[in-house]
Design a protein around this nucleic acid. Structure first.
Lengths: 123, 123
DNA sequence: TAATATAGGTACTTATAAGTGCCTGTAAAG
DNA sequence: CTTTACAGGCACTTATAAGTACCTATATTA
C-alpha cells in the first residue's frame, strides 16, 4: 500500500498514471499490439531514448504495461498492455477519436497527421 | 486556420487541449454544471489564482468552455462547457471512473479522496 | 472605517519535465 | 575491420510548467 495522499477528485489519480507528454501516446500504440522498444521509437520519432525508457519504467511500475525480456544477444525486449492496462482501452480509443475530430475542426483536413500505419483508416 | 503542425498520432492533438495538470480537473468539475471562478477555486484548493485563470483562458481559446461575464460590481464571471466541450463528457467521465477504481486498487479504500460534493456517490 | 469578496493582471522565481551527449556490450552485416 | 542494431545507464543542461508576491477596482459587510 502506497503512502497516504489526498486527491480532491478521482481524475487526479488517473493523471498520475497516464499524464504527461508521452504516456498516452505510448499506451495508444500498445493498444495495437505488443511492441519492441525500437518499434516504439520509430512510431514516436520525437521521443528521446531516455524519455521512452523512463516513461516505460513508470508505466510498468504502475502496472499498466508488461515488460518482456528475451534472453538473447542482441537484446530483445517487448512491451504490452497488462490486463490492468487494457482497462484503459476505452479511454485511449476515445482520446484518439476526439483528436481526429479536433484536427478536422481546427485544420479542416487530416493533412497535419503524419502518414503511418496507425492512421491508415483515415484515408 | 492555425499554423501547420505535424502530429504523429491523433491523441497528441487531444493532449494539446486537455493535457497538463489542471485542465481535465477543471473540465470534470464543469461537467457538473456552470461554475463561478471562486467556486472552482474552492473545488480545487491547490490551484493558484494565476493557474486557474491561465488554464481557463486556454480552454476558452480552444473552444471547449464558454466564459460568461455579468456586468456588475463586484464582478461575476461564470464558466461552462461549450457545446464542443460537451463532446469530451464521455472521456472525462471515464477518466474519473478509472481514477476511482485505481485508487481502490492502490490504496484499498477511498480514504485518500477528499470528501466533497463530487465524491458523494462513493459513500 | 477598515476588512472582505470579487476576478483578475504582471513580474519574478522555482520546480519539474524533458532533452543532449556520451557510455556499455555483443552479434551480424557490409 | 568498421559499422549498425539492440536496449539501455548516467551526468548534465535546458525548456516549460507552475507557483509567489504584490497590484487594480468597487460594493457590501462588520
Amino acid at each position: 500500500m502506497k503512502q497516504q495522499k489526498k486527491y480532491n477528485i478521482s481524475v487526479e489519480a488517473t493523471l498520475e498514471v497516464i499524464g504527461g507528454k508521452w504516456k498516452c501516446v505510448i499506451l495508444c500504440h500498445l493498444t495495437h499490439g505488443k511492441k519492441r522498444t525500437s518499434e516504439l521509437k520509430r512510431l514516436m520519432p520525437d521521443i528521446t531514448q531516455k524519455m521512452l525508457t523512463q516513461q516505460l519504467r513508470e508505466l510498468e511500475e504502475d502496472g499498466v504495461i508488461n515488460r518482456i525480456v528475451y534472453n538473447q544477444v542482441p537484446p530483445k525486449v517487448e512491451y504490452e498492455l497488462s490486463e490492468y492496462g487494457w482497462s484503459l482501452k476505452g479511454i485511449l480509443d476515445s482520446l484518439c477519436a476526439w483528436g481526429e475530430k479536433h484536427i478536422a475542426k481546427v485544420y479542416g483536413s487530416m493533412d497535419v497527421l503524419e502518414e503511418n500505419v496507425l492512421n491508415e483508416h483515415l484515408k
